[in-house]
Design a binder for these strands. Structure first.
Length: 286
DNA sequence: GTACTTGTTGAACG
DNA sequence: TCGTTCAACAAGTA
């Protein structure tokens, strides 16, 4: 369930590892997860840099090509160096998980570099994808997505403008809509709304100025802090208790339905909103 | 067998 | 046509 901070963590790790490397070939065992041109076109392309756009990993290649990877719920992109040491999600994988330096039953794509190192794409549920696209295709994809909440253009007044576009939306669904603001998923929406003391089903137009202000600050704070802690790896990667992103210890409401509110001791309520599990405090979120 | 998990998309509605 | 909600889908776990 990688959201913005998790994807950023992967990107931060990857960029150090693979910038300047040249792809040699690709081994694809699950064809539907990759674009048909990938196997042929990845050869001899060099990695210029790795960036994040929304929840996608974007590997910029020479000749104006873009390798775009979406991890969806359970995808992992693991870099394995020439010595066989693996790095995933920005965290070195400890020796007890040495088997993940080798392809396993969840490894569906292997991208080899000319120097013998490689990238493994693992995905338990096969929801993710890897697409090799042109600059035009990438721009179209990027333009379908909204503003980056950590970019300096995302100011409070900009946030208010975007809120005005969907006055009747429930605030949770507004925040999950990637066409408006990108990167927030179920975890960080629930956490931000708790921090801002706003109930998830409040309509956007009912938010007071000070609430909007609190929410704006909460979103930025939660995302920044989560990146600092290496994301929230609720590690669904088989049953191995891997290197968990340390933000998991900072969660205030996500996954805590029925437990006590850490702010007011009230029992946290869990409901469904738009098919998503949603946890909030009926007492201190207004 | 069934409920549950999330990001995304497309259908259906008013 | 638009905003909004809902269902479906991917595939596996508990």
């Amino acid at each position: 369930m990688p959201e913005l901070p998790e994807v950023q963590t992967v990107v931060n790790g990857l960029t150090k590892k693979i910038s300047g490397k040249v792809f040699s070939d690709a081994k694809i065992s699950v064809k539907k997860m990759v674009s048909t041109n990938l196997k042929k076109d990845i050869k001899n392309k060099k990695v210029k840099r790795v960036i994040r756009r929304a929840k996608m990993i974007v590997i910029e290649l020479t000749q104006d090509k873009y390798l775009v990877v979406h991890l969806k719920m359970t995808g992992q992109l693991i870099f394995v160096d020439i010595k066989g040491k693996a790095f995933g999600g920005g965290h070195p994988i400890e020796s007890k998980e040495i088997e993940f330096t080798k392809p396993n039953k969840y490894t569906h794509v292997i991208l080899n570099f000319k120097d013998g190192s490689r990238l493994l794409y693992n995905d338990v549920r096969k929801f993710g994808w890897l697409k090799l696209m042109s600059k035009e295709e990438y721009n179209i994809l990027s333009n379908r997505h909204g503003i980056e909440p950590l970019a300096k253009e995302f100011t409070l007044s900009r946030f208010k403008e975007i809120l005005k576009k969907r006055p009747n939306s429930k605030i949770k669904q507004f925040l999950l809509n990637q066409e408006l603001i990108v990167g927030l998923g179920n975890i960080y929406v629930d956490e931000s709304l708790f921090k801002a003391k706003i109930k998830p089903f409040r309509r956007v137009y009912t938010l007071k100025g000070n609430e909007t202000d609190r929410l704006y600050k909460a979103i930025k704070l939660k995302l920044f802090t989560a990146i600092k802690f290496g994301g929230t790896s609720v590690n669904t990667f088989v049953s191995i208790s891997g290197e968990r992103g340390k933000f998991v210890n900072k969660l205030k409401v996500y996954g805590r339905g029925g437990m006590k509110c850490l702010r007011c001791k009230n029992e946290l309520t869990k409901i469904k909103m738009g098919g998503r599990g949603t946890v909030y405090c009926t007492k201190c979120q207004k």
